[in-house]
Each structure stands twice: as structure tokens, then as C-alpha cells.
């Protein structure tokens, strides 16, 4: 059975914990008839937490819509707002289509972006081939990284004036 449910978040840091619990409780109910491994809810929690942080810290607006969609053996968590465009999208014109471009690297992780179209970027991570870890160089901002690693697919779309981050988790 396909399901969809939306929630409105007020972009306040003080609301993060209660809002996250509300969404997770709803998600547990929606997934009750779907087969999934034990990691799915943990990964969904990581993703929801980071998307909420992103809303509070970077959206530049007062309202964000979160939507869960379960269909075709996948769970999609989408965050949409009318706020600030992701800065990386301003550089999309310089990115080659369908070619991975390194966004950040710190010895532990490499985060890449791919321009899928003029309105859509996708993110993924690779472990560095030559692992040289210098603690002092480790990044302290890792929200996008966590989502990219937890999700099976993670995209950012800008269809003016709407920003949408979308994380997809395979149920099987």
C-alpha cells in the first residue's frame, strides 16, 4: 500500500526533538505493513535529524514541509521550503553533467555532487583511496555527509522558488 504524509515544521531549534519524535512515530506506523531491516528506522532518524538541523540553520525562512512517501518498496523523506537556495546550486552552471565533482574531503570522507539536470543535484560519498587522517583537518560540519551516507539516494532540487532535499531509503 502506498502512503504519503506531510508535516509542517516551524524551523525553531527548540522544536527539533518533539518534531523528530512525532515524525518517527508516524513513520513507524506507516511501515508496519512493510518489510524492512532493522537499520531502516535508525537511518531514517539520522536523516530526519539532519534535515531538521538544515531547516533551522540554513533555510532562512520560517516554515518547512516534510513529506514521507512510501511506494514501490522505497521510503522517501522530502524537505521543502521557500528559503535560501543551496549555495552549490549557484555553481551548477560550472558542473559537468553526470560527472562527479568533489565537494569536501577530510581524509575520512569524500563527498561528491553530480549535476543530473539544471535543477537537480545528487550527492554521494566515497571512502578516500589514500587514507591519510590528520585529526586537525577533520570537518566539524557533517550534516550533508550523514544524509548522503545513510540514504540510498540523496538529491537537492531547486525549482524556483522551492528548495527540496530528498532522501530515499530502499525498503528491501
Amino acid at each position: 500500500m502506498n502512503t504519503r504524509q506531510s508535516f509542517e515544521f516551524d524551523n525553531q531549534a527548540s522544536s527539533i526533538s518533539s518534531f523528530s519524535h512525532q515524525m518517527l512515530e508516524c513513520l513507524v506506523g506507516q511501515l508496519v505493513n512493510h518489510h524492512h531491516d532493522g537499520q531502516l528506522l535508525s537511518k531514517a532518524r539520522y536523516i530526519i535529524g539532519e534535515l531538521l538541523n538544515n531547516a533551522v540553520k540554513h533555510s532562512g525562512c520560517t516554515k518547512t514541509i516534510f513529506t514521507f512517501t512510501i511506494e514501490n518498496d522505497s521510503l522517501t523523506i522530502a524537505k521543502s521550503d521557500y528559503g535560501t537556495k543551496l549555495e552549490l546550486m549557484n555553481k551548477a552552471g560550472y558542473l559537468k553533467s553526470d560527472v562527479p565533482t568533489l565537494v569536501t574531503a577530510d581524509g575520512l570522507q569524500e563527498l561528491y555532487v553530480i549535476k543530473e539536470s539544471e535543477q537537480l543535484l545528487s550527492f554521494f560519498c566515497r571512502d578516500p583511496q589514500n587514507e591519510e587522517i590528520t585529526i586537525q583537518h577533520l570537518h566539524e560540519h557533517m550534516g550533508l555527509l550523514i544524509i548522503a551516507k545513510a540514504a540510498d539516494r540523496f538529491t537537492y532540487g531547486f525549482n524556483a522558488p522551492v528548495n527540496t532535499f530528498t532522501a530515499t531509503l530502499n525498503l528491501n
Binding site: R45, G49, E50, N53, I135, Q136, L138, H139, E140, H141, M142, G143, L145, I146
Partner: peptide, 15 residues
């Protein structure tokens, strides 16, 4: 539960 901001604080503390 920890999020990226708390992990960032842990990394800053480690440094």
C-alpha cells in the same frame, strides 16, 4: 541520539 552538530563538538573537543 547524537546529530551532526554534537558530533562536530566532539571532533572539536578531540582536536
Amino acid at each position: 541520539y547524537v546529530d551532526s552538530s554534537f558530533l562536530g563538538a566532539l571532533v572539536a573537543g578531540l582536536k
